[in-house]
Nucleic acid binder design. Structure first.
Lengths: 118, 118
DNA sequence: TACATACTGAACCATATGGTTCAGTTTTAA
DNA sequence: TTAAAACTGAACCATATGGTTCAGTATGTA
């Protein structure tokens, strides 16, 4: 509903949420490729593939260049730095939470064994 | 269109593609919280917030437990390991591609300076 | 010149998404 | 026992998504 902004992180995580698009990135890691070649590999119409590439482009993950009649796609220089940073920071958050929980459990165990002494 | 499967990565990246949901994760990193408290903080109806939490739950990023009339949300033990791994592997792919490109450019420079000698 | 290739854009379709309201149910507290 | 609080579920709405087809345009090639 009325998508107000849509930050870079919104766009890149959204772009990565589709298996076909993750596959395109895999493919482009092997080397630059045309839209029609990608369409071929992923068994999809040219038009369909073009849409996927556009999503990746909007996310800055892929750049394209048209020379003659073929548009070549390659990985964007933007990379996945911001995404890696978000994920890494929050992976640590998850872990910290579980450590906190473990401590709580240990405290509870402690209290349990203290009961006879109180 | 007819979403065939929808892998765990699909679900988690999709869950992370919304700023509100990333905010919920931030929040839960600080401590467990009820749905209504989250709805309050993000200025949204209870029903709306419940949907966001459900998306995070389906992705395994959040677990909930209802005690009495309040449902408490906390970070799921699944964490962000798989996501971190995908991102990290592909971040390297991006970098490798640029190194390959740099080499190509260096080769071309080399050829350029060789021209007088050939 | 004529034909094939590679892309582009518009239109269409079914389903998903991100919200809302409204009408419940269950708990808790006065 | 009555009322408020916290959630739940159904229905609705506008827009987005992931595809398709069809009708172009531009570029290469025989």
């Amino acid at each position: 509903m009325v998508q107000y902004v849509s930050s870079p992180l919104d766009r890149s995580f959204s772009a990565l949420s589709d298996a076909t698009r993750r596959g395109i990135i895999d493919q482009l890691g092997q080397g630059d490729t045309s839209i029609s070649s990608l369409a071929d590999q992923f068994q999809m119409t040219l038009t369909g593939m073009k849409k996927h590439v556009q999503v990746l482009q909007l996310a800055g993950l892929v750049v394209t260049q048209k020379v003659g009649r073929v548009r070549t796609c390659r990985l964007g220089k933007r990379g996945l730095k911001a995404e890696a940073e978000w994920i890494e920071a929050h992976r640590k958050l998850f872990e910290a939470r579980f450590e906190a929980l473990d401590e709580l459990i240990n405290d509870m165990k402690q209290e349990g064994s203290d009961e006879s002494a109180s």
